[in-house]
Design a protein around this nucleic acid. Structure first.
Lengths: 348, 348
DNA sequence: ACCGGTACCGATACCGGTTGCGATACCAGT
DNA sequence: ACTGGTATCGCAACCGGTATCGGTACCGGT
C-alpha cells in the first residue's frame, strides 16, 4: 500500500514550504491569494486529507465534544444526539458519542476514554454519577454539561428538568380531572433512575391528597424472560396483568410512553375505552402515541431542544470563557392531557 | 488551570524512564513485575490518562471504527449502531459515529473527516455513494463494510440484504393470500433510496402477475408541512387520504413500519377491520407493531445483527488480513404475514 | 537614498507519545 | 575467566502537523 499523503507532499506539489501549506489549508492569514489556491489545488490533486492526530497534538486543541448517553434503544437519546448534532452543525465543533448501557462502570470507562481524546467539552446524561466519575468530570478542565435531569448537584452546567417535579405535576393534573384510583406500570427502575424519580414525584403528589398507588407492577413481574420483549409489548402485557389483578382503576401511570402505548394497545384490543373506562398516562411525548391522538396523557419533553441547548452552552462557554453564564437551564416538559382535558371540562 | 499530566510525570513519579512507563501501561513486554506495579500505581495517583493523539501519531495506528449512518430519527439506525457497539465490546476497537441526514454531500464530508482520524475500519450505510465518495472509500486503505443493502457493487465487503428482493418477496407472499388490489404509501423516496428499491421490487412482482399499484400516495401529497409530522402521524393521514381516494383496496404497502403503523391507527379509529377489510404491509419489523400482534404484515430485518456482523467482518479482516474472507454477507429479512397467514389457510 | 511598516514566507523547535536498537546486568555453562 | 543468552532498561529518532519568530521583499513617505 502506498504511503499516506502528508502535508509535506502537498507543500512539495505546490512548491511552497510545509508552513505555508498548513496555513493555506487552515485559512490562516499571512498567505498570498495565489499560494492559497496553489496549495488547495495541490491538496485536491493528490487527495490529501489532514491528520487530526498530528494537528491536535501540535496545537494542543481539538474540536471534539464528547456526548455520553445511557442507551440507543430508547429513541429519546438518539433524539438528544440529533439535537446536539444539529446545534453543532455549522461550527467547527463535532460530537463524539459514547453509550453506557445504564452501567456506571461503563460510564466511567467511556469518560476516561473520551478524556484521552482531550475533548473541548463534555455532555453527559444525568446527575447521579458515582463520586469517582464526578471527580473525573471536575478535573477534566473543560466545560461539562449534564443533561436530562436537574434533581441533584451538577458538576458544572446542567440542561434539563426535574423528573420528580414532572411526576408530581402530571399526578396533580390527573387528580384534577377527578381521577382517584391510580395504578403504576414500570420498566427497570433500578437502572433508570430518572424514571424512579418520576414515580416518586407522582407518589408524593398522591400523598398530598391522601392517596397512594392502588397497585404497582413492573418488568420483574413478567413470568418469562422480559428482556427479549420490546417495550411496547412489555407494556401491553403488564397492563393486561395489572387490570386483571386490579380491575377498577381510574388511571394507569406508566414509566414512559413506550409502555403506555403498549397499555393503550391492550385496551383497544380488549375493548376497554380510553380514557373513558381507564385513563392512561405516559412520559415523553413520543411520536407513536400520535397514532391515536389524545388517548394517552403525557409529559412532552423537549429532548431535541435539550441536546441543542446543551451544545449551545458548550459553544458559548468556549467562546467567552470569562463571562459567567447561566449554569442551569430548565426546559420543563409540557403536560398534555389529551381527551381527559375535555372530560374535565364537562365535569366542571 | 494546572498542566495536564504526561507520561514523563508518571515516569518521574515512578522513578523510571518514559519508555518503561509507556511499556508498563500498555502491558508491553520487557518490563519487570515490580516496575509494572510501580508505574501503574504512580499513574493512578497523579490521575494520568494517556493522550491518544500522541499515541496514535507515534504508533501510526488507531482503534477507531468509523460508522456512518443516514439518520438518528429512524430507530433502525440506532439499532444498527447498538449492534456494532455490542460486537466491538470486549475488543480494543471502538466505534465513532457519523450522521449524514441522507445527504451525499454531508456523507462525503463526514467520511473525509473520519479519514483524518485514520480509523482502522469503516462501516457505511448503503451502496449508492457517488463516484467521488466511492473513490475516497477505495483509497482509504482500511477495511470498508457497506451495510443494509446489497443491490449494487460494493467497494469492499458488504452486509445486508436486497431491498428490491424484499419488496418482491412480500408482494409475492401477499399475492398468494389472494390479495389483488394494492395501494402504496411512501415516505421521501428521493432520499431513501432503499425504500425506493423495495417499491420497485414490489411493483416488479405485481407486474409478474399482470398487476400494478391501483393508487400511490406519498408525503408530497400532504397539503400542509409534512416535515413537522412524525412518521406515524404521517402514515395515518396518508392512509386516510388514500382510502378516501381509492376505497376498494385489498392491501396497502407502506415504505416502512412507522407509516404502516400510522395506517393501522387510522383503520382502528375508523372502524376498518385489518386485515379483513384491508390488509396492511410494512417493512422492518419494529417493536411498535407488536402492540397489535399480527395485524400488520412486515419483513423483519435483522438490523442489530447486521451491525454486529459488519463489526465482526472488520475485526476478522484486521486480524488475518492475508486470508481472503467472504465479501458478501446476506441477512435476509423474514416475512411475517401475521393474521393474513391464517386467512390464507382458510381460503386454501 | 533611507526608513518604518506591512505582507508574506519558512527554519526551527516542539507536542507527547512509540519504535528501534543498543546498553547493561545477571546468570548458567564450559 | 570467558562466552552466550535472557531479562530489563533507556537514548535518540521520529510520527505529521503547528506556534513562534526571525527574515525578506516591497511599498510609500520624506
Amino acid at each position: 500500500m502506498k504511503r499516506r499523503k502528508t502535508l509535506a507532499d502537498v507543500a512539495a506539489a505546490a512548491g511552497v514550504s510545509k508552513m505555508t501549506a498548513s496555513r493555506a489549508l487552515r485559512g490562516d492569514k499571512d498567505v498570498s491569494q495565489a499560494n492559497i489556491e496553489r496549495v488547495k489545488q495541490a491538496a485536491r490533486e493528490i487527495g490529501y486529507y489532514g491528520n487530526q492526530f498530528a494537528s491536535s497534538l501540535s496545537s494542543k486543541h481539538t474540536d471534539l465534544i464528547g456526548v455520553v448517553v445511557p442507551s440507543l434503544s430508547n429513541i429519546v437519546f438518539p433524539q438528544v444526539m440529533s439535537g446536539v448534532t444539529d446545534a453543532l452543525k455549522g461550527t467547527v465543533l463535532q460530537p463524539v458519542f459514547g453509550v453506557t448501557d445504564y452501567d456506571s462502570e461503563t460510564e466511567y470507562e467511556t469518560l476516561r476514554n473520551m478524556l484521552s481524546w482531550r475533548p473541548a467539552g463534555l455532555i453527559v446524561t444525568g446527575l447521579d454519577q458515582p463520586p469517582e466519575t464526578r471527580q473525573l468530570l471536575k478535573d477534566a478542565g473543560v466545560p461539562v454539561v449534564q443533561i436530562m435531569d436537574i434533581d441533584g448537584h451538577p458538576v458544572d452546567s446542567c440542561v434539563g428538568f426535574s423528573h420528580s417535579e414532572a411526576g408530581h405535576d402530571i399526578a396533580t393534573a390527573l387528580f384534577e380531572t377527578e381521577l382517584r384510583r391510580f395504578g403504576y406500570v414500570g420498566g427497570n427502575l433500578d437502572k433508570d433512575l430518572r424514571a424512579a424519580k418520576r414515580k416518586q414525584g407522582f407518589q408524593s403528589a398522591l400523598r398530598d391528597h391522601g392517596l397512594a398507588f392502588a397497585d404497582i407492577i413492573d418488568e420483574s413481574d413478567l413470568v418469562d424472560d422480559a428482556a427479549a420483549l420490546s417495550a411496547v409489548d412489555c407494556g401491553r402485557r403488564l397492563t393486561a396483568d395489572l387490570l386483571k389483578r386490579t380491575p377498577n382503576l381510574d388511571c394507569i401511570y406508566f414509566s414512559n410512553d413506550d409502555l403506555a402505548f403498549g397499555g393503550l394497545c391492550h385496551c383497544i384490543a380488549a375493548g376497554i375505552d380510553v380514557p373513558g373506562d381507564v385513563a392512561l398516562a405516559g412520559f415523553n411525548g413520543l411520536g407513536i402515541i400520535e397514532g391515536f391522538p389524545g388517548k394517552v396523557a403525557t409529559s412532552r419533553t423537549a429532548r431535541r431542544k435539550i441536546g441543542e441547548q446543551a451544545a449551545r452552552v458548550i459553544l458559548e462557554t468556549l467562546e467567552h470563557s470569562k463571562t459567567k453564564m447561566s449554569k442551569l437551564h430548565i426546559l420543563k416538559p409540557e403536560i398534555s392531557l389529551g381527551e381527559l382535558a375535555a372530560i374535565n371540562h364537562k365535569r366542571n
